[in-house]
Amino acid sequence: MEPSAALVKLAKARPPFWKWQGGEFIHALAWAPHGHTVAAATLGGELVVLDGVTGKPRWHKPAAHSDSILWLAWHPRDPILATGGQDGVVRLWDAAKGSPLREWTPDPKKKWVEQGAWSFDGAYLAVAAGKSVTFWNAAGEAKGKTGEGKATVASIAWEPDLDAHRLLVAGYGGVQVWEPGNDEAVTGAEWSTSVLAAAWDLHGEWIAAGTGDGSMQVWRVGTEHTLRMGGYPGKVRELAWHADGKHLSTGGGPNVVCWSFDGEGPEGSAPIEWMGHSENVTAIAAHPTDPNRIASVGKEHLLFLWRIGDENPAGIRALPESPASTLAWKPDGSLLAAGCEDGGVVVFKIG
């Protein structure tokens, strides 16, 4: 179903702040912690750091990797950008100049490096390749490894606590929590399904996971308390905790479904369901400071801004050429970047 002409006209009334065009599908996108630049990586191995105001490249590496770049991660304190992908290599870049600092191959037997994430204090870089995760520091020194899961690691996320170094590792069969240097998982939850995406809430109390069987699994960390929210029309790959940790929004179809975790969690409660997209949601992103706001994009090229308490969209934007594959808010919430399937990065001003 195509969006109505009136809806498209309304969306096009607010053109992008700027746009940059790359060569292939944007697979990873993230603003630097200081908010002055945004980095984008493509499935063609292209890496660029763009000025947040002008959209012009600060530096650009057309062949940063010999194959697809699957992730990028800014160091939270130092001017370092980490990347990894299908060539099996992890590279650290000088984030200001674009010069390579160091590189290594986490596991020569496994080509793809599917996931990467810095801990919140920057002490560790977690890198997932195959069924396990290795831990490294910014000097490229190995600092431990998790055990192997039942299948390829699908998602990793650090607990949002500067004083803790606990990593969520998700894949087929459930989730586990690991600490660098430990030979066994600290805790975990088992589910008889494939986990496609998972994330901690901001207080480290809940872990939510989107699955391949059209459901969302929720676990209260360190307990046996788990919940299953089913009924999604498709696989749940999109999920985002809101800024206060009291709401979680998910994709898994054409609607954005928002669950309340205020109090004892969502058990027995009905979610908010925002209906605007005419095709499946491809990415969602919670506003970094306002807990009531979230953005979503769909296959029909439209970007919606939603606000808890409002049934209708709080804002609509149109992506010029192609659907978005990823979204990223500037840390202060003033700009929203969308990485598109045609290789474009589109940035909108958000009031």
Rank of each mutant, 00 (worst) to 15 (best):
W259M: 06
S260M: 02
S260K: 01
G263C: 01
G263M: 01
G263K: 08
E264T: 04
G265E: 06
P266N: 03
E267W: 07
E267S: 10
G268E: 07
A270H: 09
A270Q: 13
P271T: 00
P271F: 06
I272T: 12
E273P: 00
W274E: 04
G276S: 08
G276T: 02
H277L: 01
E279Q: 10
N280A: 03
N280V: 00
N280K: 08
T282W: 12
T282C: 03
T282Q: 13
I284T: 10
A285S: 15
P288T: 12
T289A: 13
D290R: 09
D290S: 09
D290C: 09
D290W: 07
P291R: 13
N292Y: 07
I294L: 15
I294V: 14
I294Q: 15
A295T: 01
S296G: 07
S296W: 07
S296L: 03
V297I: 12
G298K: 03
G298Q: 02
E300A: 10
E300V: 04
H301K: 05
L303M: 10
L303K: 06
F304D: 03
F304G: 01
L305A: 11
W306H: 04
I308R: 12
I308V: 11
D310W: 08
D310Q: 11
E311K: 05
E311A: 00
N312G: 03
P313Q: 06
A314E: 13
A314M: 03
A314Y: 11
A314C: 02
G315M: 02
G315V: 00
I316Q: 13
R317Y: 15
R317K: 04
L319R: 09
P320F: 12
S322L: 01
S325C: 09
T326G: 14
T326V: 11
T326R: 15
T326M: 08
L327W: 14
L327A: 08
L327P: 12
A328F: 08
A328Q: 05
A328L: 06
W329P: 07
W329L: 02
W329F: 04
K330A: 04
K330V: 02
D332A: 03
S334Q: 05
S334L: 01
L335K: 11
L335I: 05
L336V: 11
A337R: 11
A338C: 14
G339E: 11
G339K: 06
G339M: 04
G339A: 03
C340G: 12
C340Q: 14
C340A: 15
C340E: 15
D342F: 00
